[in-house]
Write a protein that binds this DNA or RNA. Structure first.
Lengths: 144, 144
DNA sequence: CATTTAATCTATTGAATTAGTAGGCTTTTA
DNA sequence: TAAAAGCCTACTAATTCAATAGATTAAATG
């Protein structure tokens, strides 16, 4: 399951995507509208800035804004950044590979196969889920 | 990621699948061969017994054995039993549904769509991953 | 140039979950 | 009836997750 932190990150990003190219949005505003604890959100946005997804401006009229286009930010990136591996086993992870202590020898472990397929299918879907698509979907759903 | 407990459970089950219909296997044997702490394994096997995947025999010559055929036990069942939900969000889970506090209203949340697809793809693969298939795969890999 | 605003950074804390242990109890077999 | 083996309850240690506190730095404005 996704951590709360990751859910907060996604909601904050969708919120910023909706205001793309409209100047900085303050932490306080996002915090209130999305019901995310201010200080916690602060840390999350900082991480997203370090990952060069967001940029910030200090001082009056400052805040955070997307540097990438909403169509260029997807759930795969965000989840990897905030929660780490997407694969279900470390020995099957692309970005966080680590050998499994549990299977004595990786070469003959019969479990890895299936979990590699799960990983690939998951990545495929998450990579296609961009902020732009999520936003579009929300607008569709709101109209009904 | 899967918990260690879940990995232990899977390895223990594959071990028992290899000895299907050959009488009870003692905790101690599985513990040693699969490098799983004895007492922890005890708790895991008990859970699998309560789920009617395993059965046990007490006293001398006792131990654990599969009651279901290796082709009837799959990773979907085991993961749900040991780790809980397979979906990435509670509001998208089939067996552990719970509303997300984070999205104020589920009806218009644009994230759920993608994660429903991820869930379905994942379940499809995990359901097909039976102990029989895993065992077969391990034997293939061992030969090379 | 001082004040205010808002992000930055470091450090700490509390709660929950995960991993594992201890020890006595019960059942079965020989 | 003694030994073997699983059953059950309770506890503890370690790690991760969620959140907070407070001092610092940078930008805008009058």
């Amino acid at each position: 399951m996704l951590s709360k932190k990751c859910k907060y990150a996604i909601h904050a990003l969708v919120y910023l995507a909706e205001r793309y190219d409209q100047g900085p949005v303050q932490i306080e505003e996002i915090s209130k509208k999305q019901h995310i604890p201010h200080k916690f959100l602060e840390a999350i946005l900082l991480e997203l800035r370090h990952a060069e997804i967001l940029e910030s401006k200090k001082g009056k009229g400052g805040g955070y804004f997307l540097v990438k286009k909403p169509s260029e930010v997807n759930l795969m990136q965000v989840m990897r950044l905030i929660d780490g591996p997407i694969a279900l086993l470390p020995c099957v992870s692309l970005h966080f590979y680590d050998r499994c202590e549990e299977c004595k020898n990786e070469k003959t472990c019969g479990i890895r196969d299936s979990l590699t397929v799960v990983r690939d299918e998951t990545l495929r879907v998450l990579e296609q889920s961009t902020l732009a698509k999520i936003l579009k979907r929300e607008k569709q759903l709101a109209q009904k």
